[in-house]
Amino acid sequence: MTIREMQKILDAQFLYGEELEDVDAEFVFSADMMSDVLAYCGKCSVLMTGLCNPQVVRTAEMLDIVCIIFVRGKMPDEHMLALAMEKGIAILATEHYMFTACGLLYEHGLRGGA
């Protein structure tokens, strides 16, 4: 599924990286603890989280994540967006809660991968 498709399914805002809209992803990991993301993210290339601080972008960078989806209406600040821009990581933000957002993507064929 492309990042653009995820954005539409989640009714999300594209905060950065529209030029990455055609990047394809198969596996998503969702968590608020970055320690768990680092431990279990495995082959996932999309990170869904309700945590909103610069270490989310750093964690994504270490794991070669291509897109971060912020749930529950969390909005990254300018500093975080600048960091995402520097690292080439697309940023989406949706009002959906984590469970719903995961369910919607799962329904459309994405899977969790570890």
Partner: peptide, 9 residues
């Protein structure tokens, strides 16, 4: 922990 770390991992 509120910053996303300190889960003992």
């Amino acid at each position: 922990r509120s910053l996303g770390f300190g889960a003992g991992m």
